[in-house]
Amino acid sequence: KSCSILVTDANFECNEENIMLQAMDNSHIALVSVEIGAPGFTSYRCDRTMPLGVDLTSLTKVLRCAKDENICTLKAADEADVLNLVYDAKSAFFSPFFFAFMWHGRDASSPFPPFFLLCSALLPLFIHLNISLSSQTPITSSWPETKYDTRVTLPSAEFTRIVRDLSQLGEHVRIEVSKEVVRISKLKAKSSAEDEDNDSIPTGVVIEMNQHVSLTFSLKYLVNFSKSGSLSGEVQLLMSNDVPLLVAYDFTQGYIRCYLAPKIGD
């Protein structure tokens, strides 16, 4: 869901060890990289390395049908052109989705026809949804390992709050890191002469730095990145001057890393 805000379609590269996704947005400003290791799944099997080209907008719509307690199984057969999603309801209760289906058009004076009786028995167990797989060209180009001058670790909820609040006030933000202070300043759209500083030193911030860094970014993208905040309690901002910002959310069996090109010039 976080990725679908940035990119509309992408390839999930599946192998025995993990599922990975890398995709760049159409404007070439942001790049997202996701990895979920096999141990992160209740069960995982990949008989053959294969890319699953998925329309993320459609996938997000389908995922909205799931409730938090649903177990989602993703399956793609060899040579298949669909990704099959199965939601297995853990509870015995019907989800609202089932209700909508079962009660639609029912004549209250007549008993359920056999078809609906069959559905009532099966639907609580599974919903099957298919998504067509596209043959999108995978992004195979990788970038060099970057040595960053600074790393700031802070609670992801604080980062989400800061960028969301600042996005109400301006389009861009300047992030400056010195030895003891991280300053996240709103920039006015037309002039940076009257920057309005925002208190940006929440509890639990760790700063590691070799060199003072000052970079300017589009807030819109940072807000989109921050949607991944629910995946991890902490977020890391890795920066060097004149190098893309890396916003990293690591979780137990994987990560989502977002790269953002800085603004250049004053």
Binding site: S27, I29, W143, A261, I264, D266
Partner: peptide, 13 residues
């Protein structure tokens, strides 16, 4: 301000 281009940057790397 102009915008840094990621695709170009990584291509040059």
């Amino acid at each position: 301000m102009s915008q840094f281009n990621l695709k170009q940057y990584y291509a040059e790397q």
